[in-house]
Every structure is written in C-alpha cells, then in structure tokens.
C-alpha cells in the first residue's frame, strides 16, 4: 500500500529468470484461489436469490441491490421509492471514518513532524514506540478502550477526581466512542507515512522562506505542506479505508444505535436469519468505494511524482 512496487528502480537482476514461473506459481495459485476467485464469486452471489436458512439459490436476481437502494412497500408491489435505511448506514460510516481520520491527522501530523526532526539516531526508537500498539491485537485494543471509557471507568473516575465533572460522562454507546475507537485503532497509520514524507523533506526550503521573512506558520502551510502532501493523503487513506469497513469498534463501543457497514454485512452471514446475496451486494458496494478511493489516490501520487521530476 504505502510502499512502492519492489523491483521498480533497482538494477534488474535475472539470476533466476528461467525458474520465474515456478517461483511465482505458489503465490499465484494460493492468492488466485483464496483471494481473487472468492471476490469474483462474491460478485456472482450478489446477483443470486437468497436461501432462507443462509446460503443462496442459483437463480439470477437483482433483488439484493434493489433492496439496498429501493423501498417497494411491505408486499413489494408499490412503485419504488428510494430507501434511505442502508444508504444512511453507509453515510454514517463515512462520517464516523471521516471524524476519526481528522482526529488522527490533528494528533498524527505534529507527532510525525516532531519525530522526523529528531536526530537520526533516536528517530528509529520513536517510530518503534508508535508502531508497538499497532501490533497489539485490535480486539484487545478495542476492549481496552471500552474499559477506559466506560461509565465507571478510569477516565471518568479521573475526571471526577480532578473536579472537571460531577457525574460520569456517558461515552460508550455513543458516536463519539466509535470515533475514538477508530481513531485509536488506526492512529499509527497516520503517523508513519507523514513521518516518511517529512523525513525526505529538504529543510533548506524552509530556511529560504525564513530568510525571506515568512513566519513559521506560513512556512509550514505554504512550503512544507505542499511538499509532504502525498504523505498526508496516504496517512488519511490508511486511516479512512479500514475505518470505513471496521466491525469491532462500532460493535463493541457503539452499541445497537451506531450501526456501521461492517455490522450490517456481518449480520447477513452470522446466524441463520441472514441474507447472503444482500450481504454480498453490500460488500461489493463497499469494495467498489474503497477501490475508487485507492485508484484516485494512486493517480494523484503518480502525478505528484511526475511534477517533482
């Protein structure tokens, strides 16, 4: 994702040219059958008819997509009107992921900048400190967040103890809890690409700006920010995209009212009441949105690369 395609710029070595097919075959077979074909099958399933005990009947049908976008009344015989139920769940997911991304940017940018301007020796340690929490199990991190934020939890107790509030704030089961959970889950993803971009930044540009009497904030906004913009966008995407389809944070921190795409999809497959074609259709819509975001991003990155050359 954030790395450039290996093999791009380095001198082309061809020691194993003859064995290439055999070397790549295992990865083609495994990923072809367990990643690519499943996604294609999912597309097929989204056009099938649902089986009531879960699973599908192999009859072509558009009902999954129809159910997603339109309301045809209780008996399905009224003229279709736009059904906002599922669209609004997607909208809420966008909103929640967006707030989490902005929060991460607000904390992540200064952090990344600070780390990138440390002496070379200590940078690796700072980066290491930022990455450790990412490698801790996401479920455990989300549970920890819930433990911290709950009504009688340490955060509320601390706030009461210092006299900031009188009674506990209800954070768990609100939109805010989900936003904080997503922010917490993916914060390291914001820091790392911005750090990489600032580290490559040539500070003599800022010095030139300072010599020409630009204030520090003007220098940051007008000189540094345009140069490190690809890193900032990469960070935003790395937080936004996984937040959009996340399941654990909305499920554990949000409660029933703060439904997101992940829970909607999960519900279609777990237990017996689910609707597989509808779940497949919702997954296809999510996947399409994510791929569009990634393609636009990739194009922008390559345009930026060209502008620099």
């Amino acid at each position: 994702m954030a790395t450039s395609a290996p093999g791009g710029k380095a001198a082309v070595s061809n020691t194993y040219q003859k064995a290439r097919t055999w070397l790549l075959l295992p990865s083609w077979l495994v990923l072809g059958s367990l990643s690519l074909i499943p996604v294609i099958l999912m597309l097929v399933y989204s056009f099938l008819t649902k089986e009531f005990r879960g699973g599908v009947i192999w009859d072509f049908s558009l009902s999954a997509y129809d159910q997603f976008f339109f309301d045809r009344g209780l008996f399905g015989d009224e003229p279709p009107t736009i059904d906002w139920t599922y669209i609004s769940i997607f909208w809420r997911s966008f909103w929640q992921a967006g707030v989490a991304t902005l929060l991460s940017l607000a904390i992540g940018f200064p952090t990344a900048y600070f780390i990138a301007t440390r002496p070379v020796r200590t940078r690796a340690i700072w980066v290491f400190l930022i990455t450790i929490p990412y490698w801790v199990n996401l479920l455990i991190r989300t549970v920890s967040m819930k433990f911290l934020l709950r009504d009688q939890g340490p955060l509320n107790e601390a706030l009461i103890a210092i006299g900031l509030i009188d009674s506990p704030l209800q954070i768990v089961n609100t939109n805010l809890a989900v936003q904080l959970g997503l922010f917490y889950s993916y914060l390291p993803f914001m820091v790392l690409p911005i750090y990489a971009a600032v580290e490559r930044y040539d500070f003599s540009l800022s010095e030139a700006a300072a010599d020409l009497y630009a204030s520090k904030w003007v220098t940051l906004r007008r000189i540094l920010l345009p140069v490190v913009k690809p890193g900032v966008i990469a960070g935003c995407i790395l937080v936004f995209v996984p937040s959009l389809g996340s399941f654990l944070a909305p499920d554990l921190l949000g409660g029933a009212k703060n439904y997101m795409i992940g829970s909607l999809i999960e519900e279609q497959f777990k237990g017996n009441a689910g609707n597989w074609p509808f779940g497949a259709a919702a997954s296809m819509i999510l996947l399409t949105i994510v791929l569009i975001i990634l393609i636009v991003f990739a194009q922008q990155q390559s345009r930026h690369e060209q502008a620099r050359v």
Partner: peptide
C-alpha cells in the same frame, strides 16, 4: 525471488497486484 531476481516480465505489475490484494480489500469483504 521471482519478482526481484528474475528479470523484467509482462506480468510483473499484475503479480504485485495479486500479492498486495489482501491489503487493498477491506477485511470484512
């Protein structure tokens, strides 16, 4: 080894895309 030690080839980008597919597709999908 096949990607970096076996010269240039036509399916290079495609192979890299396949390898990174699990990173691009959301987990729930």
């Amino acid at each position: 080894t096949g990607m970096i030690r076996a010269g240039k080839f036509k399916l290079h980008m495609l192979s890299f895309g396949l390898i990174s597919l699990p990173l691009m597709v959301p987990e729930i999908v």
